[in-house]
Design a protein around this nucleic acid. Sequence first.
DNA 1: ATAAATGCAAAGCCTTTGCTAATCT
DNA 2: AGATTAGCAAAGGCTTTGCATTTAT
Lengths: 124, 124
Amino acid sequence: MDRNTETKSMILKAFKKGYTPTAEELLQKLREAEPNFSRATLYRNLASFCENGKLKKVSVVGKTDRYELNTGCNYHLVCEVCGKIEDLEMAGAIKTPARLMDYEVHSHELMFYGVCPKCQKKRK
Amino acid sequence: MDRNTETKSMILKAFKKGYTPTAEELLQKLREAEPNFSRATLYRNLASFCENGKLKKVSVVGKTDRYELNTGCNYHLVCEVCGKIEDLEMAGAIKTPARLMDYEVHSHELMFYGVCPKCQKKRK
DNA sequence: ATAAATGCAAAGCCTTTGCTAATCT
DNA sequence: AGATTAGCAAAGGCTTTGCATTTAT
């Protein structure tokens, strides 16, 4: 399992730091080079890259999911206008309470992912 | 605009503290009382309740969006097993580094929403 | 009266799946 | 050779939209 293919490296090569496309945006980009690039293959590979930790899927309420290189960073800046997502290095990022990395910040959301007490019990 | 209808209050009444259904789960519940409850009406009203702040849409990567009463709380606990989402009152919630409110916490995600520098400039 | 809300069915967007052909090891 | 991956088209889930009808103010 997990063989090296031209298709897979094309996908990974497309990701550079700070590039957080939706699957369809990425497909469009890949089809510039390879007009028949398969949508199914792209989605399947994106999913598997997320499983093996090479990529990370980021979800913003009301928007299509985006993918990024998995840097291990769990802090993000989301532009509500253009949809872009950036990693946020917390150290030194805070400028004023409403300003982070020159973003004008309107709100934030902190999510903890885990297992609730009920499901912990059921699991045993 | 924004008239009081039986339909709207049925929707709001369905939400109790801690109930965070997907739209389809909620539809199913509403149809127990009103078997022909309209899906389109439900989605339209959910969207408008989110706009006026009565409800809040919560998004978890890879899962269908959920809705909750908007308590103004931006901290959430997400169960990866059953999908339930709970508000998290930070004060006093931390038990051990990996335990919050009896959740077994695996990861977390902090998102800041705002406007990026480029879009700030364009806006003017 | 009239602007807004409802309900239905159809359309849309994004994503997944079934299946065959091609490809990697 | 044998299992994995790619590609296409079709199906699926969730959400939105168009339009005619009903309802609140």
